[in-house]
Amino acid sequence: MLTGDDNSNGWDRASVLRALVGASMLPLVAPLLSLDPDAVHADRRTVDPDSYQQIVRCQRELYRTSPARPLYEAAYAHTQLGVGLLRAAATGTSRASLASALAESALLTARLAFFDLSQPAVAERCYDVALAATREAGDYALAAAVLGHMAFIPAFGHQPANARPLIDAALQHTWHGVSPMVRSWLHCVASEVEARAGAAAVSRRHIDLAASAVDSDSTPPEWLDFYDDGRLHSFAGYAALASGDHGEAAVQLNQALATLPGTSAKQRSVVLADLATAQGSDGDRVADYLNQAVDALHTDWYGTGLDRVRAVRPMLGDSRHGASLGERVAALTAGRAALSG
């Protein structure tokens, strides 16, 4: 995916992967190979998509309990393999199934790159692969999920005008027999986009739509393991914070925290940082929640969680709590930089 068929630059895969996750450099990723089967192979192979899908499923299950960087490297390599397999695969049902599995793999890789390792450029390339694969598969649910995830990149970059069309496109896919849970999650994504844009009323309206879309009788896709009632409460808490309703935010975030399993330290760091915000001027409680968030980051690194902690840190000003927390965050990031080097 990175070097193409002719590796004229002399980069092996290990070198490329090290560059992609380097702590001090913005990744420069060459255009990904086309999924068009006519682009390279005259002969066609029959590929068993189940074996490829099984590895995707295992890597997805490892997401909550494995260190982000090695899992990212494994997922990226598996996505690369999937691109090659799909380009060589014969047309038919097995090709469509392989394309769906590739979309899942590329989506997981992109999520690791963006949310865990803070590498949006790499994530964007992987989302492109995932979206192309959903078209090949005719998988509306996965297409909606990929487009929804793509919206986070401009949303985090303070470009809501670029995020909204992606949400709109994703929601259009949900009218093709897609699980209501996917639509619920998309409304939550839209809620965060609007919250970050300062549109608090619109953000909370999307939370209402997300709650009304939840259908207990619907079976969500297997890959939708990043969304449940607890995550809905987490998004609702963030929307309440955007509107200045700290009491409601605390209620929603505490419900989210209560539903998190012990293996969800990544999301725990985000919820705890948001709970710190909900404490307002109570410096002791703000510091307590932020220190708990840093503890969670020590257990499972999560770039998004660190960003959230840093965003709340100014609430402590130059107080003793603020200085202590600053030292902890500096030590944590220095340790991460040493590991990445």
Rank of each mutant, 00 (worst) to 15 (best):
1 M>K: 04
2 L>F: 08
4 G>I: 10
7 N>Q: 15
7 N>S: 14
8 S>N: 07
8 S>Q: 10
9 N>D: 15
10 G>A: 10
13 R>D: 15
13 R>G: 07
13 R>E: 15
14 A>H: 05
15 S>F: 02
16 V>Y: 06
21 V>F: 02
23 A>T: 06
23 A>Y: 07
24 S>I: 03
26 L>F: 02
28 L>Q: 14
29 V>F: 00
32 L>S: 12
32 L>R: 13
38 D>F: 12
38 D>S: 15
41 H>I: 00
48 D>T: 09
49 P>V: 05
50 D>P: 01
58 C>T: 13
59 Q>Y: 10
60 R>S: 13
60 R>I: 05
63 Y>A: 12
64 R>M: 13
65 T>D: 11
66 S>C: 10
66 S>P: 00
67 P>A: 09
67 P>H: 04
68 A>C: 02
69 R>S: 01
71 L>P: 09
77 A>M: 01
80 Q>L: 11
84 G>V: 14
84 G>P: 12
84 G>A: 14
86 L>M: 12
86 L>C: 11
89 A>E: 13
96 A>H: 01
99 A>M: 10
100 S>W: 03
100 S>N: 06
105 S>N: 08
107 L>F: 11
118 S>W: 02
121 A>W: 11
121 A>K: 11
125 R>W: 01
128 D>H: 08
132 A>V: 03
132 A>E: 13
132 A>D: 14
136 E>N: 03
138 G>E: 10
140 Y>T: 15
144 A>S: 12
145 A>H: 08
145 A>F: 03
146 V>H: 05
147 L>Q: 14
148 G>K: 01
156 F>L: 10
157 G>N: 15
157 G>P: 01
158 H>N: 15
165 P>W: 13
170 A>I: 11
171 L>M: 12
172 Q>H: 13
174 T>L: 10
178 V>L: 13
182 V>S: 05
184 S>C: 12
186 L>V: 11
197 A>V: 12
198 G>K: 08
205 R>T: 12
214 V>P: 02
214 V>F: 03
217 D>T: 14
220 P>F: 03
227 Y>M: 04
227 Y>G: 04
232 L>Y: 04
234 S>L: 08
235 F>V: 03
235 F>Q: 01
236 A>F: 00
236 A>V: 00
236 A>L: 01
237 G>K: 01
242 A>V: 11
242 A>D: 15
243 S>M: 03
243 S>W: 00
245 D>N: 13
246 H>M: 08
246 H>S: 10
252 Q>F: 04
253 L>S: 05
253 L>P: 06
254 N>K: 08
256 A>H: 03
256 A>M: 05
261 P>V: 06
263 T>Q: 08
264 S>P: 02
264 S>V: 02
266 K>D: 11
266 K>E: 10
268 R>A: 09
271 V>L: 06
273 A>Q: 07
281 S>A: 15
281 S>L: 15
283 G>K: 07
285 R>S: 15
286 V>D: 03
288 D>M: 12
290 L>R: 06
292 Q>K: 05
295 D>I: 06
300 D>I: 02
302 Y>P: 05
304 T>N: 07
304 T>Q: 12
305 G>S: 09
308 R>P: 05
311 A>E: 11
312 V>P: 04
312 V>L: 05
314 P>W: 07
315 M>Y: 00
315 M>R: 14
316 L>A: 06
321 H>C: 04
323 A>I: 14
325 L>Y: 04
326 G>M: 01
327 E>K: 09
331 A>P: 07
339 L>I: 00
340 S>C: 00
341 G>C: 08
